[in-house]
């Protein structure tokens, strides 16, 4: 009898090239966020944005088994989801720069970034807005006889919206192929989950909807990948929805207006020692998927992609102001 495979879930489940690609996309997410932040500081991007630095494992590990026909709904903190689902960072930067070449032709910006062709139905400016929409996408898959699952990303803040209750209840009643992924970063803007949420963990609420609920270390790539793998298998088998709670942390403030008066420096620094990218990279090296030179090359490639993306965005044309009402309705 063969010895049990004690390697982490991701290492024993995914081929090395997929793992290396996942690491690259995690670097891309972080470098994208840093590039967006830098461009904002330089005045190249206006408005606001919600950065997901520190949450890269949650986005990427969740998307490991999704195809382009599987759908995700995303949140206001959605740049990472978009990249993890396969979007091109050049077109994303172009959107943030408000350019015609952006994913939304400059009409949506950071809070509505989407890539329908890779199954990303869009970030959402309304907390909880994507929850019922995800259930609807799962209903379409069922009705149209497609094997697709829908992953619904939402934050801990959304778990106190009425839409959360209505969406999870309907998904369970109809046994729809949807996986609810809560990225619990501890704070809905400035209000901690302890002050806003009656249960200790968001996943505790799953019992009220008769679905499995599991809380995992959201900075542990394998822990997230395994929990989502089980939930997707259940959804594809027709057994209904699940709730996966990824406990994580955002290193940056809620948005550009955040003066960080509700978190301590110590708390932030403590979480930064649990860097999901460094942990995943160390795991890949420890299990021989990668050596240090390979890791350096992946990071360099991600940095190059981000630089090229920003250059593409800068060089892209702005929308024509005479087309301000274009896309309100379908074009004949």
């Amino acid at each position: 009898m063969a010895a049990p495979d004690n390697r982490p879930f991701a290492i024993r489940t995914y081929p090395p090239d997929r793992l290396r690609e996942a690491l690259k996309r995690m670097h891309l997410i972080r470098r994208f966020e840093e590039g967006a932040e830098d461009s904002y500081m330089r005045g190249l991007i206006h408005g606001t944005m919600h950065l997901s630095i520190g949450q890269e494992a949650s986005a990427m590990a969740t998307c490991m088994e999704l195809t382009d026909s599987d759908k995700i709904t995303s949140t206001h903190r959605g740049h990472g989801h978009c990249i993890a689902k396969g979007a091109d960072v050049g077109r994303m930067f172009a959107e943030f720069f408000g350019k015609e070449t952006g994913y939304c032709h400059g009409r949506g910006g950071s809070m509505h970034i989407a890539d329908v062709k890779t199954g990303n139905l869009g970030a959402n400016g309304i907390v909880g807005g994507g929850l019922p929409i995800a259930v609807g996408a799962a209903l379409s898959a069922r009705r149209l006889g497609r094997p697709d699952v829908t992953v619904c990303f939402f934050g801990d803040g959304a778990n106190n919206e009425g839409a959360f209750h209505e969406a999870l209840n309907m998904a369970s009643v109809w046994k729809l192929p949807v996986v609810f992924v809560c990225e619990n970063n501890g704070y809905g803007m400035s209000t901690s989950t302890a002050r806003s949420t009656a249960v200790r963990q968001v996943a505790d609420r799953a019992v009220a909807y008769a679905m499995p609920g599991v809380t995992v270390d959201g900075n542990d790539f394998s822990a997230v990948a395994e929990a989502v793998h089980i939930a997707i298998a259940r959804a594809r088998a027709g057994d209904g929805p699940s709730l996966v709670e990824n406990v994580t942390y955002r290193w940056r403030g809620h948005s550009k207006s955040d003066r960080n008066r509700y978190r301590s420096k110590e708390e932030i620094e403590e979480w930064m020692t649990r860097d999901p990218i460094a942990r995943f990279q160390a795991e890949l090296i420890a299990h021989g998927v990668l050596d240090q030179a390979g890791a350096d090359a992946i990071l360099a490639a991600a940095i190059a992609d981000v630089e090229a993306g920003i250059a593409f965005a800068k060089a892209s044309p702005a929308p024509n102001v005479s087309e301000v009402t274009r896309y309100v309705y379908a074009e004949k």
Binding site: T73, L121, G129, L131, P132, I133, A134, V135, G136, A137, A138, L139, S140, R143, G162, A163, H165, E166, A167, N169, M170
Partner: peptide, 10 residues
């Protein structure tokens, strides 16, 4: 809210 949202998503 949920029902209308499911219809939108569908």
């Amino acid at each position: 809210l949920g029902g209308a949202g499911v219809a939108v998503g569908a």
